[in-house]
Amino acid sequence: MKNQIKSLRERIKEMEKIVEVLIIAIPKEESSYKFYLELANSIEHEGSRRMFIKVANQELAHKGMLEMELKKLQHEIAGLKSER
């Protein structure tokens, strides 16, 4: 029983570390998105503008992915904590 609780605790700790990484990465993706979007808006060359919009959208997609992972992990952690 004690071993089970210990392993559960370790698992939660491990997952919280991943949450930490995600929570730091999400604002970075958001700022990258804003950066590329601003670049796209400031540029006149049509091809470059399209490229920057594409890159900005990619950053937004990354952010969405990370947010999904974060939600999943938070849900899992809450489940594990209730088990404990």
Partner: peptide
């Protein structure tokens, strides 16, 4: 605001 109030180690 930025980190959504998530309670992690940091």
């Amino acid at each position: 605001k930025k980190y959504r109030g998530v309670r992690t180690h940091i």
